[in-house]
Amino acid sequence: MERSDCFVSVIAPVQNDARIVKPFVEEVMAVLRQSFTNYELVLVNDGSTDDTSVVVSSLLRDYECIRLISLSRSFGADVAISSGLDSVIGDFVVVMIPESDPPQLIPELIETARNGKDIVIGIRRDRNDEPVWMKAGANLFYWLCRKLFKIPLIQNSTQFRVLSRQVVNAITQVRDKSRYLRLLGAYVGYSSQTFTYDFIYRYRHRRLKGVVELFDNAVQIIVVNSVRPLRFASYLGLFASILNVLYIVYIALVYLLKERVAEGWITV
């Protein structure tokens, strides 16, 4: 296959992934070498407590064009990916999670991006590997986002995506502290397209997040990205004050129009 003449950067956050990072890197590098003239792989160590950094350090010696960014502590995948975005140099940037996203799709996605789509967003086909409560929670969350909070979040979209250089430049200019990249992508605009794919499982059992963490995430996303909760509170306050004013008017009328009013009822 002809290698396409563009520079592709791949960003992958790793956290306690010592067991899977090697096969992941092997696969990604094989795909990149075969498909592109220039490429780089940027691994971001998100405060791993196992020997991920040791494994990656040895990989740095074995492969060309791999870089490692180590965060001082764990900040979460979004911040990890953001720091990667601050550093990559490619014309197109692929973001992927080693545990679940298949590297074999990269050439096809890059082709889509080269044909004029600045953002190519991955959507997982199903959530069959998750317990029922999690699926229900996710559905509820997406429904709320869509109907109530008007947050332009695509249902079941993942971190797996391709961004053009323009989009990366735009995202790196946003200096908000909270970084939810799936939304930042939508926030900066540009033309986008989705693709549906099946998760791969490098771990026999996928590591799922706890319910508290997920709930926190959801609240965070809603609070940061929608003014609606704030507006609801304002409207509620306004509504309550209107009720109060009406009540005051009622009391004043009672005082003025009625003759025998119980003593002390109208005084404060």
Partner: peptide, 10 residues
């Protein structure tokens, strides 16, 4: 050069 110039342009 393809690497260094891309970073420089940023």
């Amino acid at each position: 050069f393809p690497f260094s110039i891309r970073d420089t342009i940023r």
